[in-house]
Nucleic acid binder design. Sequence first.
DNA 1: GTCTATAGATTGATAGAC
DNA 2: GTCTATCAATCTATAGAC
Lengths: 216, 216
Amino acid sequence: MAKRNVKSNVDMRETLLQLAARSFVTQGYTATTMRSLADQAGIEAASIYYHFSSKEELVEVVVAHGGDSIVLHIQEHLDALPPNASAETRFKAAVLGQMSALIKFGDYALAHGRLLAQLPDKAREGQVKRHEQNQRLWTQLLEGLRTEGMLRPDVDIALCRVFLLGCINSVQGWFNPRKGSLDQVAKQICGMFFEGVKPAAKARKVSRRAEAAASS
Amino acid sequence: MAKRNVKSNVDMRETLLQLAARSFVTQGYTATTMRSLADQAGIEAASIYYHFSSKEELVEVVVAHGGDSIVLHIQEHLDALPPNASAETRFKAAVLGQMSALIKFGDYALAHGRLLAQLPDKAREGQVKRHEQNQRLWTQLLEGLRTEGMLRPDVDIALCRVFLLGCINSVQGWFNPRKGSLDQVAKQICGMFFEGVKPAAKARKVSRRAEAAASS
DNA sequence: GTCTATAGATTGATAGAC
DNA sequence: GTCTATCAATCTATAGAC
């Protein structure tokens, strides 16, 4: 039994990153002060500069970590599929991948999505590329669907993308793992996306369990 | 030909509100300084305090204006319908209403959506109610659809709402009025929402003009 | 690795002249 | 209504002791 500090400093750098991610996301970049982060970590503001050279470096690391996590996590889900998987299968895997990345990497993932506009100029440029990379991945997945005849000719791919990402990214705000699985929510989203919400000519009965996963 | 200032001060209060809305949305609340607003308006920072008692009052007015505009604008669209309009008709009118509110009130509308979390505590409480009012309106519209049998029993209303609002709210970011009308985009969104993106058993040909309205 | 002390810049806001 | 001048508070960041 060694030390027992406020945060039982196993790794102060990691602690600071997590606190920073949460604060940047909830309070914003400028509103987050080095002092408040230090307070929460149980150290003095000046001590942060032993771990990070500046506030700018701190936010860069947070946002980069978030962006990388999402892209890599989706890629993992895609790589796990057989090479001849259909566009629809790949699409569904990506939906689940992006959702679970949001849950798993929480504030980091949100930081990447919400913080870009607030970043200092230098830091922003590098991150924008990461963001565009994610957008391109989704555009490709949607184009794959179109090639395989899974998209009506009149639906716009760019519109689909914002439609989907807006929905998926909101998951982090309301998902409650005790009430249902991510898998069920992902299925509901894909169902809504492909089939719409209108009943088919012949009404059908489906499990309502996925419904319980949304709290609000 | 009276005065001709930097902003030709017809109404400095209005000018300040518009600049503040834009800056709050793009830079965030804390990052927006009274000095930068004054610079853009062509006056000194101290002069702002003749029009507003504090930075806090300034952001309150901006966010309130945005929230009211959206709710009232949708309500206008709904009130223009005949009293016996179907839930589907009301729903489509609300989609167009929220979209055109976003375009018409631009930064004010975005401020209401994006700034809530950054507001000082006192200002936030009042605004949260306005936000919930908007959410309730959409929930009611969706419940109306369900009552009239336009929603499959397995689709979750809360999920529908985030799905829709995420999509609609993104409109402000990419809509280009020279490439198409809001009406066309609204139709596409409603089509996607009700019918999904999957081709029907029997493929059909539809106009692609709406596709051109999205730029990115 | 963390502390105390403090420099240097910027912020929201006030007082009073015009 | 807008200005000049200024205050008190707070911020990022550095220097150097321990």
